[in-house]
Design a protein around this nucleic acid. Structure first.
Lengths: 245, 245
DNA sequence: GGGTGCAGTTGATCCCGGTCATCGCGCAGG
DNA sequence: CCTGCGCGATGACCGGGATCAACTGCACCC
């Protein structure tokens, strides 16, 4: 599974486990919560140790026990169509919540797998909704997060050309990295070309070709899964994504 | 605007305005709410009279004051891209809630327009969230509705052929009509071919051609905007949609 | 070292669906 | 009645991206 070796990033898993000091709190569920309320939320949250690359957080049909907040590492969510084809729904960075589409039937509607060694916070669903009954801010947060995901998936609708899709993805990823305090020009793609192409509804060959074309045009520099944005301006004008947040 | 004439369906607007006896309650926000709780919800809801064809419920950027539940008629939601192109996000039948993607930034993210003379229930957002603070069932309903929409938009992802899209749309519409106690084989499309094609991310010509092909194959019978499903079985096997609900 | 296997790139070809153009129809207004 | 107009259907053509195929490069392992 792990091709690059274990590389036990210990400090990753010894990260502050309390929301109060977590650098992701602003992006995560507790966003904007008063400090006292955050303390009560913390009490419910169970950090979960190293999750190996390729390990699943949940699978389609699993009963909804908890939502998960990414603490470190990267995840992808996907589903298997009736035809057997895989369909990638999204990639998830630290601070993002996974499993929201399970609320409706109380069963997970997609699979979630770690793309790299990762760690998460487990948010028992029942306890969260119970608490949000008392804390208006928490309820607002949950609604906002769901609404935001909805708006995001709306923005992904529409028919785009291959170049628009790839450019839009890079720009959007860049901004998500920036919010997390990481380099916005030097991106490390956690996913394979195959997953990326699948997510963008393109063939892997097409993604390769667009990368090559962009590189020739001086827009980016590609080295394996390292992508450097050389001309973010022009790239942004190419891709038309709403890049929520 | 109204090409087929006003046809003032008075009984439509004199419909029971209380959720308790509304036939749509099972599909709408109060779904599964205890009777006492439903009474309290009713008190907040303002029915809104005839809305003419082409009239807007809200537009992009409008502050979120209320969510809207369709009571009668049909709506479409759409947005205008930076390029000026319109993008249809969905069609909304009686019992469905519109405006959920406005919760996140407290501003509407899309435009909503009536495709036929219609009526709605207005749900003041602040009052709803306040009340849901007291009624766990209401909070659950809101989360479920949002989660369901999210799952739906996930199911629309993926690259489908033109025939899969059209077949999937017809099957899904059929099941939505059935739930509402209407004919599941004799469908009346409220939207133009242009809107439909836009929604399905196809050219209007392609939709026309697929309709013709389906008719030749004995799958459907088309007369203007009347579509009769002749072979729902085979149609369902063609379209691969999750048809949430 | 050579072998194996997977990820990614590049090239050649094909086909679905978009685009452009034309035509028919139903309807409103003079 | 004719005219105009918008919607929808149909035909001819074209192009972007999928598909098929060959090749490269890197990692791992005997």
């Amino acid at each position: 599974m792990s091709s690059t070796g274990p590389v036990p990033q210990f400090n990753l898993y010894q990260l502050r486990r309390t929301c109060g000091t977590c650098s992701l709190a602003e992006l995560c569920l507790p966003m904007g919560l008063p400090h006292d309320d955050m303390r009560r939320l913390e009490a419910l949250i169970a950090p979960r140790g190293p999750i190996g690359e390729g390990e699943h957080l949940f699978r389609v049909g699993d009963p909804l026990r908890a939502l998960f907040a990414v603490r470190g590492g990267f995840f992808k969510t996907y589903l298997i169509e009736a035809t057997g084809r895989e369909q990638v729904l999204g990639f998830h960075l630290p601070g993002e919540l996974i499993g929201l589409d399970a609320i409706w039937p109380q069963k997970h509607q997609c699979n979630a797998v770690a793309l790299s060694t990762a760690s998460v916070c487990e948010l028992p669903y029942g306890a969260i909704t119970d608490l949000s009954q008392e804390l208006p801010g928490l309820q607002q947060s949950m609604l906002r997060l769901l609404s935001k995901e909805l708006a995001l998936s709306h923005s992904l609708a529409g028919d785009f050309t291959a170049e628009e899709r790839v450019a839009g993805f890079l720009v959007s990823l860049s901004s998500r990295m920036k919010v997390r305090g990481l380099s916005e020009t030097q991106l490390t793609l956690a996913m394979s070309r195959r997953d990326l192409a699948n997510y963008l509804r393109l063939a892997t060959e097409t993604v390769s070709r667009v990368f090559s074309r962009f590189e020739q045009d001086g827009l980016i520099a590609v080295d394996r899964r390292e992508v450097a944005l050389r001309d973010p301006e022009r790239l942004a004008s190419l891709g038309r994504c709403l890049s929520i947040d």
